[in-house]
Design a protein around this nucleic acid. Structure first.
Lengths: 125, 125
DNA sequence: GAACCATGACAATGACATTGTCAAGATAAA
DNA sequence: TTTATCTTGACAATGTCATTGTCATGGTTC
């Protein structure tokens, strides 16, 4: 039964319903809806309007969590950082992460499920 | 040579005492001390320990004011943006400013030496 | 039909930004 | 000297924000 099927690793593919996504990022579903209202994440929707988060969405949310919880940035700050990321290329957050976790033992935000090797956040959107 | 009053326009030169600086940026002196405690500004000191803000300091504070008041960013976010600015060159805040004041004709506060002298850049307000 | 999702409202909690004041002492300028 | 301003440190009021949580009403999925 262990089929050799492996093709669906597309981190863009919407798969997680909100309750699952919330669990993955250790947040309340309410919080994820707020992130969306604030324009920080844009999960796909099923034809019947149900949110589906992709792996990229999860990573993006993990960045938000890192910035807000570990660095104390508020959502307005996160928005600006994402804006910058889109405007100036993409390496911004990485540089940030180095700065923030110097010798702290933290690990970069990573999508819990499916440990896709690189673990680098990407500006999906 | 008429010694025509060549006031050192060196934007680095510490000149403003805290009450003046506070007036220039429309903030309470208390607030400026907080900015300093947070490591966001580092005004020079006289030999007798009195703060003296330079033109650059003022511009930097105006950036903080712009980011916090107009963009809603908190001090942690400002700190990160300044960190990034130091790490990735200096175009960051400019790009940001464009985003914030689309088509307004204002000039962004600049930390560069080539400040147009008098120009106290009031970011939007 | 039970469990989950959607939106919208409302609220409690804790943290933060800003302003403001008071105190006790040093400095500057008249 | 006198007066105004500066220093640090403490305390507090105000308003805002982030996050979590609940409730209600209704649609969706299994």
């Amino acid at each position: 039964m262990s089929a050799a099927r492996r093709p669906d690793r597309d981190p863009t593919r919407p798969v997680y319903v909100i309750s699952v996504a919330a669990t993955l990022v250790s947040a309340h579903p309410r919080t994820l809806r707020i992130y969306e209202d604030e324009g920080l994440v844009s999960p796909a929707r099923t034809p019947t309007n149900i949110r589906l988060y992709s792996e990229e969405d999860i990573r993006r949310i993990l960045w938000i969590r890192h910035l807000t919880r570990d660095r104390g940035v508020n959502l307005a700050g996160v928005r600006i950082l994402f804006e910058l990321e889109e405007r100036l290329g993409q390496r911004i957050l990485e540089a940030l992460y180095d700065e923030g976790t110097r010798g702290r033992g933290d690990e970069p935000p990573e999508a819990g499920a499916s440990g896709s090797g690189d673990g680098r956040p990407s500006p999906g959107r």
